Amino acid sequence: MKKGVLLVNLGSPDSPTPKDVKPYLDEFLMDERVIDAPKWLRTLLVRGIILQTRPKKSAKAYQKIWWEEGSPLIVISERFRDKVKSGLSLPVALGMRYGSMSIEKALGELQSKGVDEVLLVPLYPHYAMSSYETVVVKSLEVQQQKFPEMQVTTMPAFYKNPDYIKVLSDSIAEGLKDFDYDHILFSYHGIPERHIRKSDPTKFHCKIDGSCCKINSVAHHTCYRHQCYDTTDRVIEHMKLDESKVSSSFQSRLAGDPWLKPYTDFEFERLAKEGKRNLAVVTPAFVSDCLETLEEIAMEGQEQFEEAGGKHYKHIPCLNDSDAWVTLMVKWIRQWEADQSLPA
Rank of each mutant, 00 (worst) to 15 (best):
I236F: 08
S322H: 08
M129V: 14
V287A: 00
P13F: 14
E193D: 05
S58E: 10
H183G: 04
L110V: 12
G310A: 09
V235S: 05
D323H: 15
C213T: 07
L119D: 00
S169V: 07
V8H: 10
A61M: 13
G70P: 13
I74T: 14
I297Q: 03
K203S: 11
G301N: 02
Q304D: 07
R194M: 03
A219K: 03
R194V: 13
E296S: 04
Q63A: 15
D180R: 11
E117L: 00
C318P: 10
W66V: 05
M329Y: 07
K39C: 03
S288K: 00
A61Q: 13
H126I: 11
F305S: 04
P125A: 09
K22S: 15
K85V: 05
P91H: 05
H312W: 02
G310P: 05
S187Q: 07
I65E: 13
V235L: 00
P317A: 15
F147C: 06
R197G: 02
D209P: 01
P122K: 01
G87W: 03
K276Q: 07
M96G: 08
S322F: 06
I49V: 15
L7P: 06
T264K: 08
L294I: 10
V21K: 07
E69S: 14
R81G: 00
L41Q: 10
Y124E: 01
E269V: 14
K160C: 13
T327M: 02
L168Q: 10
V135S: 08
T134D: 06
E267P: 01
V121R: 08
S77V: 06
D180G: 04
